[in-house]
Design a protein around this nucleic acid. Structure first.
Lengths: 246, 246
DNA sequence: GGTCTGATCTTGGTCAGACCAGTAGGCTAA
DNA sequence: TTAGCCTACTGGTCTGACCAAGATCAGACC
């Protein structure tokens, strides 16, 4: 049935979106490629231009393509920054999602550190070393400290040389920054956290240098656990009883 | 007279998007609320309806609102599943990345199995049990066997009760179905794989039942490693020397 | 011959008005 | 009162048009 429903049974928007998704997933549309013009796309798929624009706009907010005024629409390198939009909205109402996303972060980093132990090269070590040093230097600054912390963890993922892990980790970064920030703010209140932060990252670094995946994973996992513990105790005002860091 | 010059100076789409974002972040638009009609929104902001639709479509792909045909646009509860689109696109553009994507899958599942050890309930156990049984039943069938294999691993992630991990795993799964298939095809050629497949999954299941995260993680990790080993040896035609499974 | 300039084509950005198809709610008729 | 219809409203879409500015290339100028 349905006379106007073109070849596929999808609605206008879905049709265009599906058409583009197909090409994008199949690889016939790669980053850097320029799409055909909106008008052509419209006539090609038998829909109106506003519909095409809806689909392109959808892909834009997904960070898949970029609409350049008077130039055309080009496929972009997947850019995780768009996810900030989503996170911003989502966090505005559903703050409990943070813990859940943190699980994914732990997953990514623990796998990354294992790979890093196998694959890390001199450049990776140096990056980790720099980040480690920075953590020490900025231990008293909330903002810079959080940044240094993030850079260290990011360096771990980079050292894994796994593009996929980097993409996923980058995606979660939006949430992590919040987390890192608030964690750092605890430092001001609880001096014992300084030791935890510096020593823990040092141990993690050492494990990578030693190329010991099991130890690295375990150390990193413990690092996260202790961080959780700190935050939990901070809520109830009880801190400085975290002895089991070794 | 600068007719189309927007009051705020933003382009049409940005204006509408910003307008809605404001209300959403401020909380004056909460999940469940219904937006005013597209027409009203258009006249209210001094833009055309197609522009309003672009903005609404953008919010739709971000999972913030839902456009209901002939009903209206309502604010939805944010959920991470919208990231599925993004990840699918983003990961698809790394063509040779199958092995790399596998790393992410290992990451997700190993974290999931740890959480599963803590959080799994009876229903989860039952689902795992069913999947385990199915693996045994379909050990000689490539297609059904691959499906059963996937279901078991999926059940692990579901048992983690982490929405984020489920979403990520779901995204990766699509890219790895091929992998499952080809692995299963090895079974026909190398009988020793039957034992590996059945016993390994059994051990994984047992570890979850025992609620032992470390053992579960290690067992699952070994499971993946052995699978890799099989495939590697299959390439060079040398198989059935995989003694180092214990 | 080579370079600069400008008209023209093309592209995205937007608008206005229109029609369709269901949905919801009020109104009418039984 | 109640069943059923009618209409206003909603999203879904199309058509055709105009604008502004980058891209292109012919023709003028050096």
């Amino acid at each position: 049935m349905e006379l106007k429903r073109a070849a596929e049974g999808e609605k206008g928007f879905e049709k265009v979106f599906a058409f583009l998704r197909e090409r994008l997933l199949a690889g016939s549309l790669k980053p850097g490629d320029r799409l055909i013009s909106e008008r052509e796309l419209a006539t090609l798929l038998g829909v109106s231009r506003p519909i095409v624009r809806e689909a392109l706009r959808a892909l834009t907010v997904l960070g898949i393509v970029e609409i350049r005024d008077r130039i055309g629409t080009v496929v972009t390198q997947p850019d995780v920054s768009v996810l900030n939009d989503f996170f911003t909205f989502a966090l505005a109402q559903q703050a409990d999602m943070l813990d859940d996303v943190m699980q994914a972060r732990v997953a990514i980093e623990c796998q990354a550190i294992r790979l890093a132990c196998e694959r890390a090269n001199i450049a990776d070590f140096e990056r980790l070393q720099r980040a480690l040093a920075k953590i020490g230097e900025t231990i008293d600054e909330a903002d810079a400290g959080g940044m240094a912390d993030f850079e260290f963890h990011r360096a771990i993922v980079v050292a894994s040389h796994s593009e996929t892990l980097m993409v996923l980790h980058g995606s979660l970064a939006g949430l992590l920054t919040h987390s890192h920030r608030s964690r750092r703010e605890l430092v001001q209140a609880f001096p014992s956290m300084k030791t935890y932060l510096i020593d823990d990252h040092r141990r993690i670094f050492d494990a990578i240098i030693a190329r010991d995946p099991e130890r690295a994973d375990a150390t990193l996992r413990k690092h996260f656990a202790i961080g959780d513990e700190y935050r939990r105790r901070a809520v109830v005002g009880d801190i400085d009883r975290t002895s089991a860091s070794g």
